[in-house]
Nucleic acid binder design. Sequence first.
DNA 1: AGGCCTACTTACCTTCAGGTGGGTATCTGA
DNA 2: TCAGATACCCACCTGAAGGTAAGTAGGCCT
Lengths: 125, 125
Amino acid sequence: MATSARRGPYFCGIDTAMDVVAGKWKSLILWELHNYGTRRFAELRRGLPGVSEKMLIQHLREMEEDGLVHREVYREVPPKVEYSLTEHGVSLNAALAPLGRWGTERMRRIGAEKVSVNVAATVRR
Amino acid sequence: MATSARRGPYFCGIDTAMDVVAGKWKSLILWELHNYGTRRFAELRRGLPGVSEKMLIQHLREMEEDGLVHREVYREVPPKVEYSLTEHGVSLNAALAPLGRWGTERMRRIGAEKVSVNVAATVRR
DNA sequence: AGGCCTACTTACCTTCAGGTGGGTATCTGA
DNA sequence: TCAGATACCCACCTGAAGGTAAGTAGGCCT
């Protein structure tokens, strides 16, 4: 399982950080939680077009274990769980900001396509 | 092959940047080239303990394709190839710096082990 | 009564990144 | 004469990441 075999010996800081951000959706989850502050599971799922429930949960659990995400369970009749960033999650996001800017610049340079709502809808089905 | 299926539609800048940095050794290659300015193939291999020749070449080729790395071939009798960062490679590295600092901080927090020369030697065989 | 909502869990399957171990041509040093 | 260095290429294989599709329990809506 991806949950184990982590926290291994690292080469450097970037290596350490990458270990934590590695995963197809993790940076997007980070971004989503940063934007909305707090989100429910289904909200996250809808916000990340194309994620499977399995991967969303798996990533959220790993990020919780890594101390990036806080999970708040409300014992209500229709289950309600709210996810939010911890202090470390917030600082990680801040550390990712320059990389995001670099990526945006690169997209512009190579003229890469961006996932639009329509494309996302197509991906969904 | 890992060489294809890239430059796909991206969700955001981070997504774009991650696509380029993804790969077990790419950030290390970036770091190594940043530190030494220019390095030969065998120097890189020795500098990244545990890397296989196949992966080193594959990553270097992809990074060249992505415009991060410059490859200079000297037509000498014992072959000589020098790798260095392009302008984009340098800026990527700069954008990765805060992430590296975050990772170093995290290593300190969780008390993660760092790959030492000895460990590296062990990994090699 | 039946379907949908919530937040998951589980089993199974595919894909691919990465590793292993071989081979190439040419020259140098022991 | 032959190992070792240079910078690769190639075929094969494994393990892990991710996807698919089903099931779970309780309540709401129609």
